[in-house]
Design a protein around this nucleic acid. Structure first.
Lengths: 192, 192, 192, 192
DNA sequence: TCCTAACCGAGACGGTACGTCGTGTCTTAGG
DNA sequence: CCTAAGACACGACGTACCGTCTCGGTTAGGA
């Protein structure tokens, strides 16, 4: 007898579902993350998934978080150029050389037609990371390393956004040198 | 008599199909551009569409081009900062206030899982526009308005890429002021 | 509100599908029995049909059974020649003058390239009918009306098979006289 | 340069088409014989095929004839039982053990919904063979080996038709013994 | 011999059907 | 009594083939 149809503890099912979603996402990419396949892989009912996740994008995103358990940190050594370069280089390497790059790109792509995913992505991923960088930039400004009128949000777009651009359009390569260049070119004009 | 089932001139069918694709894309967005609906709207056969377009993304992109007939130009007044600001502001307005912004975002989104669309987008859209900007930057450099070691490709990512970032993630607004700030912050460090 | 998209009782859908299949089969013949048209006529989803019937032939056959609800009987009066003649005459009239003849021919025809239909036809139609005739022949043999070494299975082929031959090839007519002749010519040599 | 599009001698094209049709029929069976595939295999235009053959069945049949070049003969040794047995045994072996059996069955099957094939089959295949057998039977009758009132056409159905029955329905095997039995059982009652 | 008309093959058209996958809804049986 | 299993209608996909029709190159016939 297989398992019966009665209910299992919610958290147990949740865990298996997210495992399955993350596995599919990392293994076969976004198109493989369907309610159908995730439910089948997790041995759960599709009904259950519909109850907890509003869209396949939201499910995929949560599966991604569940799989990578990323730590959120922005080391502050006191040298903003060095910190930005190291952060940006780490980011470029992550999305440029690991599976994560393609996955993040697909999530952003899917988010264009999936409002639930877009919202979840902003709230749970991009916003916190932006904030960390903005705070670091503000601290640098307060330390006198950056001009007083620096627009920290725009700086984030000019560094990370530039990388996302290359990640999403892919008509120019995403290299360490590129990361370094971004910081160098931008900070030249931002020093007091 | 209806029309028979034989061949109609290729360009005639093509035109009607692209009309339909563009109309659906602008009117209801990317999810509405399916082979099925485009064929129905165009009064064409699905088979015919499959013969000419490798994916719904490629079809949508061509429908978009067909609909907007955009002119490609990068005015060069001799003042690079002014030119960049005006170009970037125009771009920000286009994608920030018209239907085109959402459409372009959806196309880029779809391109993440549609290689044919990605290739067509790079070749027919992003690459030519990048090149124009890069050439303008090189001319400015040769005029002595920019440092000799400027990385023009990176500059493009730091200006337009920054805008695409806000377009695609949408956790910060895409305003005229933002465009101006991007140019100001970046060019400060790029002058000789 | 139309009806919703959820589940309907299986037997309800089944019934409507078989009605439709039978109606199309009797009305327009085998070529009209496609999954597509049956689904449309029955107001059911094609997906559902695929779940229950392995091929359009199998669907048609079941539709045929559903429509005709034939009774299976082989009256045994004690006079084998009379019984065979009456059975064969009835069969000849059925397939020679009613719609059923063409339908059965088309089913057998389709079965040549549809293993599922072939299997279903043998199991559900021909085998039981053969068996009834064979049993009657064995009883006649045991009563001493037929030679002890009669090959009852072969007799079936020499009577009904002969009729199927004319039904399927149609280069000679299928008449009552033919049925009578078949029995007469064969039984002459089968009497003890 | 490939070959141009001008015309080739009709008989040359015909030959290649029939080669292709026969090859497909013998190799993959009736479902593989489509105008599309035959034209492709023969390197001919579909238009040409439509001009010469009214249906895929007719094309297949002619391809079959072209491939097998069967000789039509009914040896007459003077002993009708021996002749019938040897002819029937040869037939049973042909359709029971070679590819031809399946092919003939598929052709008859297809003929149920293809009037052009049915007509061509009767005219070019079954009718001539029936006639040969009927003539042999009439000669035997005239020699006094069969009763004067024998219905030769019916005899053909009771011998070959019985075999076709087993070929087409396949719920009993088609063996040499079966052929022998058919003749033995039937001729018992047909002798004067 | 050149030019032109007729023809015929190549191939695209509108269609029908297939079989599959995914979606979101709804019923129902099981724990 | 609630939940999950699972069947349903639906929409879209990509493919195969059908029968029709247009187009343009070749070839044969007339100038």
């Amino acid at each position: 007898m297989t398992r019966g149809r009665g209910r299992r503890p919610a958290h147990e099912v949740r865990g298996e579902v997210l495992d399955a979603a993350g596995r599919l996402l990392l293994g076969e990419g976004m198109p493989a993350v369907t309610f159908e396949r995730v439910a089948a892989e997790a041995g759960a009912s599709r009904t259950t998934l519909y109850k907890w996740w509003p869209s396949r994008g939201a499910l995929a995103l949560e599966g991604y978080f569940h799989a990578v358990e990323s730590t959120l940190a922005f080391p502050d050594t006191g040298d903003i150029e060095a910190d930005l370069t190291s952060q940006l280089t780490a980011f470029v390497r992550l999305v440029g050389t690991t599976r994560a790059g393609q996955v993040v790109a697909e999530l952003i792509g899917q988010a264009q037609t999936d409002p639930d995913l877009a919202e979840a992505y902003r709230t749970g991923y991009s916003r916190p990371r932006r904030d960390l960088a903005v705070e670091a930039l503000h601290r640098a400004r307060d330390r006198g390393q950056l001009r007083a009128d620096v627009d920290a949000e725009a700086v984030v777009d000019q560094l990370w956004g530039a990388c996302y651009h290359r990640l999403l359009i892919r008509d120019e390569p995403l290299t360490d040198a590129f990361a370094t260049t971004l910081v160098r070119q931008l900070l030249g004009g931002l020093r007091p």
